[in-house]
Design a protein around this nucleic acid. Structure first.
Lengths: 229, 229
DNA sequence: CGCGATCTTGAATAGCATCAAACTTGGTGG
DNA sequence: CCACCAAGTTTGATGCTATTCAAGATCGCG
């Protein structure tokens, strides 16, 4: 798949992150960064392989997951436009701790680790911004994994739905923008497809949702949010 | 409890972390840092309060935990000599995500957040080292929480015991340095005291451990490690 | 020696995964 | 246009792990 993209040093959502780069640094960045258009369900990097690059999402969504010995995939996070992936591996100088895979078509810039680290080390402002971002991300990760340990599937599902409502959601009748299969949705919530199905139909029976193979409509947002908390 | 300690800018395990400080910076650090000797089970900072300081452990051990609505404590990590606590809150400019409490008597230096952030921003080498540390810590956190989600209590217990063996452990007869009560040990493993008791006695019945109210002796390290994996 | 705290043991139960079978749905080709 | 197939989804039945509640055992300590 030949790509005729050129890295503008993230004109997108990550622009501010890199805004402190000097012209020379910016040029170095742009020269080294390799953008690539991925289709849905393509792997960007594999758990356990040397962390050679940091990936910057210009568009699309990806999931990060670990594979257990048993073979099962555990999703540890998702990233969207403007987010970075593979950051920790590169900084720690260790292999990637998880696999990154696109959930939808995505445009992703690969920034070689050495270049990235070089820029971070010589540009304190960039370093500080990365630090803040990593700190925020780490807090969030902790919260999500604690939540997954201690909240019931029903609650997590409600929260997941609430998080994926389109912005322009009318308060009583919204449409969850879930493009993924039930299998994948179950993974993101951290449960099995069967259990998810039961929970979803439970909510439908109570008139909170309306289910359709392709779409999940929220009929009673109030009630949904009540369960999400 | 009046303390006559003085901060040497961490002559201990965290020394290398701060080794890049220039004399003036080092002096500023030492002036601002406030060491304090805590007894066991004292709270260093509370979840939800503004993150005003980074804490650097000179000696002792602490646990970090979140309290759920239900009232239950969820341990999200432990820190020992040379480790930092409260780092993410200060960097993210957000309240502490967890509460820090000593498990044993500990000597801990409080470094005001502004001073810490100031030093990090003006000393790229320090910033980079903090970054690497945070990246490592975050990977570890992720691994531990995933493990807690998907490994059985028996396995986690075995791992916990293996991690807490004294260094000079003879291969077949070691003594786990567990000073805490069963209640606390259960918290650290992420289970209930009752379940922990059952698991421990299960291992004892198989001749892997020998239990005593005050001490846990490992009789068959091989077998223990086999269960830990 | 007795009392309170901690630890242990037992029984009942919740929540979820798993297995397996029925049921949709969309696509394909006759 | 319809029959059919494969993939995805739903539903039911069952089992397992760990929690919870409750009662009993043990220890340390006054």
């Amino acid at each position: 798949m030949p790509v005729s993209l050129q890295c503008q040093v993230c004109t997108g959502a990550a622009r501010e992150l890199f805004s402190s780069l000097l012209p020379e640094q910016r040029a170095r960045f742009a020269r080294a960064a390799v953008p690539h258009a991925y289709r849905a369900h393509e792997t960007i990097f594999h758990e356990g392989t040397p962390a050679l690059a940091v990936y910057c999402l210009r568009s699309g969504t990806i999931k990060l997951f670990r594979r257990l010995k048993h073979g099962e995939e555990v999703v540890v996070g998702t990233r969207g436009a403007g987010d970075l992936a593979g950051l920790r591996g590169v900084l720690a100088g260790m292999p990637y701790a998880s696999t990154a895979m696109t959930l939808e078509p995505a445009i992703v810039c690969a920034i070689p680790g050495e270049i990235f680290v070089g820029l971070v080390r010589e540009n304190p402002m960039l370093g500080y911004r990365i630090l803040v971002r990593l700190a925020r991300e780490s807090r969030l990760l902790e919260g999500q994994l604690v939540e997954r340990n201690h909240d019931r599937v029903a609650k997590r599902t409600a929260r997941f739905l609430a998080r994926h409502l389109p912005e322009d959601a009318p308060s009583t009748s919204a449409c969850a923008g879930i493009s993924t299969s039930r299998e994948e949705m179950a993974q993101l919530i951290g449960t099995s497809p069967e259990t998810l199905s039961r929970v979803l139909h439970g909510l439908a029976d109570e008139g909170i949702l309306e289910l359709d193979r392709k779409e999940i409509r929220v009929l009673d947002l109030e009630a949904l949010l009540r369960r999400a908390d």
